[in-house]
Structure formats: structure tokens, C-alpha cells
Amino acid sequence: MKQLAIAAGLSLCASALAAETTVQSCDRDVTFDKVPSAAISNDVNLTEMMLVLGLADHMVGYTGISGWKTLDEDMRAGVEALPELSSKYPSKEVLIGADADFFFAGWNYGMKVGGEVTPQTLAPFGIDVYELTESCIHIGQKAKVGMDDMYNDLLNLGRIFDVEDKAQALVDGYKAELAAFTAELDAGDTPLRVFVYDSGESTPFTAGRYAMPTALIEAAGGQNILDDFEKSWATITWEKVVERNPEVIVIVNYGNVTAEEKRAFMMSSPAFADIDAVKNDRFVTLEYVEATPGPRNIAAIKTLAESFWAQ
């Protein structure tokens, strides 16, 4: 019996050591000596990353979805056993009250610079934070957005939760699927000029150089007219949009204003009458969960490309 107890103890130690890993999260190195067992994710796309890796059993809930977005059938099925702990950004008390040991979020994806929920404010309560790669621009410098931002998050989650083989297989599959699609894509010789319309009427909220739609548009054979805008998701002027004259407008669908209402606003305004995309009624819609980093990005690229290059 004593030998069995010793063997069990050695097995537990081996398991703990096997799970120890260090990942880079924005400008921090974060070390995990055990697999998180009470994780919380914020936002619909980050939650889908957790689900696609089969990590629901390691979660105690999620936050930041119903306050802005709705869940489709796939997402509802994936999180049906988990509570939504906060409809929008969670407070520190919510995370502590859930006995969380891990928070997957990002800057402006559940955390704000200088806010009450940050890696530093959660550390004293034993809550480790992994930050969405796309969002790192809010606290420092990073390279222009690319598909590797999303792949990096999946691979790091795989390391943190000891499902590295599954994460690598997913990423390899996404890369192969995208490569096969783009190899067959009959795109034009010149990238299409594309504007991302997220929200706003007096001033538009859009995607700049560091926001995922820039990478999706490029993979589909277009060019974000604001890929020189040194921001992630941010507000610009309508004058800038008119000046750069997009040929296609990508609408991000979420919130109280529907994609059709956003299109109608642009189509009916005399200020936009000379924009090529408006003159030719060339709009394409992406759901929020497709336009932000996550497992639906490859499908989003296909949606864009089919709209860009439809005959």
C-alpha cells in the first residue's frame, strides 16, 4: 500500500512537471506550473478558441458576450454547461468570486489599460492572464497584424492547457486549408480597396493596421484602405474614407444596429454617393466572431474572397 501511495505521488509530481511551461503574453513571460482548472474567457471569439481546443472542462464560465453579441447555434451548444459570469467586461470581484485561476482576455477584449482588471491586479489573487496577441498593440509595439496572431494564441493555449498536439494539428489544418484556397483563388492583378465599417454614424469605428480584418482582407486579395493607420480598432473621419474611395465595404455585424441598417445608412447618404463601393452597391458582411481573431477566420477569408472576385 505504501508503495502504491509513493507511486501515486510520483505520478502527480510528474504530471505537474510535465505541465510546467512558459509562454509569451504581449510583453510578459508567463509561467504555468500546472494546467488551469478554473479558467474564464472573455468575448465570443476568445471563448471559441477555448472551445475548439476542447477546454470547456477546464472552465468555470465566460464573460463579455450577451452584452453586445448573440450566440449562434454552434456557440450555444459549446457553452451550454457554462455560466456567463458577466454580460460585458467582468469586474475583479466577478473573477475572484468564481475562484478563477486563469483569465483569457485582451486589451479592449475584457481589459482596459489602467483599468481594474489587468494581469497585475489579478496576480495577487492567483489568477494568471493570457492576453490576445492582436490586442498587444494597446500596451506596446508589435508587428502588423497577420494570421500568425491567431495561430500564436491557439498554440500558446495548447501549451498552457497541455493540449499542444491538438493545437498544432488545428493550426496546421487552418494553414493547409488557407493555402489550398488561395492557390485556387482567381484574384485580380491589383488588390481591391476595402473599408471596414464596424459602427458609428457621425464618425466611423474601423480596423487599422493592427486589427484582424486587415489580415483577412489581404489573404482574400484586397487591401485595407487604412492599413497605414497605426491603430487596431479605432475611430477615423468619414472624409478619410471618401478620400480613399473603397471599392468594397466590409460590414462587421453585431450590436443593436444591424448590418443592413449600416449598409442603408451609407447607401442613402449624399456624402458617400461618389464612393465606388456605394455606387456599385458592393458590401460584404462578416459576423463579429469572424472579423476578430478566432477559429472562424479561415471561413471569413473565403467569404471575403468570394465577394471580392465574384463574376
Rank of each mutant, 00 (worst) to 15 (best):
F103T: 04
E116V: 08
A215G: 10
S268P: 00
E48M: 14
R244Q: 11
I139Y: 02
R296S: 06
R159I: 02
K34V: 09
L10T: 08
T31L: 01
D153N: 14
L53Q: 07
P270Q: 11
V79N: 05
F161C: 08
G255W: 05
K144W: 04
S268M: 11
K262V: 00
T31M: 05
R193D: 13
G255E: 09
I298Q: 03
E243L: 12
E230W: 03
P36M: 06
P246L: 02
K166N: 11
S307I: 05
F265K: 05
P295W: 09
E184N: 14
D153A: 03
G54V: 01
A271H: 12
L85A: 06
A167H: 12
I137R: 12
T203L: 09
G222A: 04
R263T: 05
M111C: 04
G200V: 06
I236G: 10
E218P: 07
T22E: 09
T22M: 02
T237Q: 13
T47P: 01
L46Q: 15
F104L: 12
Q3D: 07
K231Y: 13
A299Q: 14
L46I: 12
Y288I: 00
A105F: 03
D228T: 13
D276P: 08
D189Q: 09
G115N: 01
R28W: 03
E230R: 09
P293C: 07
S232D: 15
T133R: 12
F125Y: 15
T190M: 14
I217R: 13
E239H: 10
M75G: 06
G140I: 08
K92W: 10
V257W: 02
D153F: 08
V79F: 06
D101N: 02
T292F: 11
G158E: 10
T303V: 08
D148A: 15
F229C: 02
W309F: 08
G106I: 02
E230H: 10
Y174I: 06
V242N: 01
A143K: 15
A219V: 06
A105I: 04
K142P: 07
A105H: 06
